[in-house]
Design a protein around this nucleic acid. Structure first.
Lengths: 146, 146
DNA sequence: TATAATTAAATTGCACACAATCAAATTTAC
DNA sequence: GTAAATTTGATTGTGTGCAATTTAATTATA
């Protein structure tokens, strides 16, 4: 009767489980780079955009300062990123890569290739999933507003 | 050139973001029930299966005892679940619902209906996503083995 | 030009999440 | 029958993740 409350029928749970297992899998790949999965996400953004404020980084990753500040401090301790107050607006903290952080990109480039292969997803399937997830995310963010 | 490392093209990130936003949305719905999203997942399993060991609960939710033990203790403090050592095998701890926990099901029944409506997914679309996520999850778990 | 409102990070407190380890009970192999 | 291996939870330590608050800096406004 009440299949709607069965855990197996929860879209949220299927995504929750996927996210956790994806994170675990990535952490395996990232182990020899000595970064965690959320730290890797920060690197992805910085490889692309060079220098951002904490706020901008948070907008890119959907994370707030309560998460990012300690995470970035750990990355700073590991000499992967640099944090500096903006001269123009001292409320802002600019985050950028150290040379070590930049060099890590090379190792990272192997990950998507390796993973796509292991998961056996064609580029078309991959793109389709990406598009569908983006659409669902925008719907959720929309609902959360109201 | 290196689109493969763009954050926007990461399947893992789209799922990571979805999971976090789904959790936030659910937490809104769950606020007046005084449970968190992972606690709600425990309730879903127990409404379905009545009484399980911590181990079995973990198999259903893909969580380990390091996560479940403190979570269940909080639920026990809130008088939502009962924890008791098995008589046959004292290594096992049986988790079951209190009457309060059972009664919470009524409120929960409104959530999936309300949410499906707000997200505007047809039953077919919903089921398709569910199936695709299950398939991807099994692939990831498979890769993680090897 | 003070003062109010806003903005950006940091801090605090709480709740997961998991790896690694430990302790206790049970199973097994000999 | 007992030592070794396994199973099950609990514990510890580290790292997110977020709501709520605080602090400092900037901007708007009367």
């Amino acid at each position: 009767m009440d299949d709607q409350l069965r855990i197996e029928n929860q879209l949220c749970f299927s995504i929750y489980a996927l996210s956790k297992e994806f994170t675990k899998l990535y952490n395996l790949f990232l182990k020899d780079m000595n970064v965690t999965y959320p730290q890797y996400l920060v690197l992805l953004v910085l490889w692309e955009k060079n220098k951002l404020t904490v706020k901008q980084l948070g907008e890119n990753l959907l994370l707030d300062s309560g998460t990012l500040t300690p995470l970035l401090k750990r990355m700073e301790d590991a000499d992967i990123v640099k944090r500096e107050r903006s001269k123009e607006d001292e409320r802002k903290v600019l985050v950028s890569l150290t040379s070590k952080g930049m060099e890590m990109r090379e190792k990272a480039e192997k990950i998507p290739v390796c993973l796509a292969e292991k998961l056996g997803l064609s580029p078309e399937q991959f793109q389709k999933k990406l598009d569908e997830n983006r659409e669902l995310l925008s719907k959720i963010l929309e609902v959360a507003e109201s």
